[in-house]
Simulated assay, not measured.
Amino acid sequence: MKKIILLGDSITAGYEEGVTDFRLNEQIEVEFKELEVINAGIPGDTTRGALQRLEAHVLRYQPDVVTVFFGANDVSTIMGISIEEYIANLILIVKQIGEERVILLGVPYCNQNLYQEERGMERLELYNRAAKEIAANYQLPFIELLYIMQEKSNLYLQKDGLHFSRAGYELLGQLINQELKKRKGVENG
């Protein structure tokens, strides 16, 4: 059985009102019934934390595919992850997992009425551009979320303006599934 690991923060974990429910797994499992989906999303995590837990939460499982989805917390001015560290961390994560296994996701949009100071659009775009450049440099599939989500942020985000709504997870699941369908050896269920 092929194995995919979803590596990320609370958005990957499926966070809603203080509870995680792995709803992203469900979105993938609907189309890929023969795929083992392991969720390695940790609320509050950053690329720095991901590096510390990469062996225990990802590499030891020998996955066929790993989605790498960080940025919501890294971009926060409160977390202290500079753009330079974000880039260096993402590159290390990609290299340790192996480029052939990685699907890289860009930074998600967050409600600018609520997060302008902490996660302003200029900062979101800077971190997103960095992730996109890493994807291009390492020839990784890249999932662009920032601008797609911005168009319908009221639909895709919960009231907190940061975490995904059910519609947001449907969108995210569809985008990941599109990339999985392009990979050889990952069959639909």
Rank of each mutant, 00 (worst) to 15 (best):
Q112T: 01
Q96N: 02
E29D: 08
Q139W: 09
E17C: 06
Q62W: 11
K2P: 15
N25R: 04
L157E: 04
G41R: 00
G185A: 07
I91Q: 07
Q178R: 08
S153E: 13
G106S: 11
V19E: 12
A131Q: 04
K3W: 09
K182F: 12
M1T: 15
A13G: 12
Q150S: 12
E118R: 04
I134E: 10
Q27T: 06
I28A: 08
Q139F: 13
E118M: 01
K152P: 13
P43I: 03
K132Y: 09
Q158W: 00
R166I: 10
G120C: 14
V66I: 05
E85M: 08
Q96S: 15
R101A: 15
S76K: 09
Q27Y: 08
A40W: 02
V107I: 13
V75M: 14
I5H: 11
E144V: 00
Y109R: 05
I28K: 04
V58L: 10
D21N: 02
L145H: 00
I91H: 03
L180R: 01
E125W: 12
I42Y: 04
L175Q: 09
M149A: 03
I148Y: 07
G18W: 07
E100K: 02
H163C: 13
I5D: 05
I148A: 10
G49R: 06
D64I: 05
T47V: 08
F70R: 01
Y61H: 15
N25H: 08
I28N: 07
A131F: 13
R101H: 15
I148F: 10
G8D: 04
Y138I: 00
L140E: 06
F70Y: 13
E170T: 13
E84R: 02
N177E: 06
L124P: 03
H57E: 06
R53N: 09
Q178D: 13
A13W: 03
V75L: 15
E118S: 13
E122Q: 05
C110S: 10
K3F: 15
V75R: 00
V30L: 15
Q62Y: 15
L157I: 05
K152Q: 13
G71F: 01
K182S: 15
G49T: 02
G8A: 06
Y169N: 07
Y115I: 11
T77F: 14
I87W: 13
L145F: 09
E170C: 11
L59S: 07
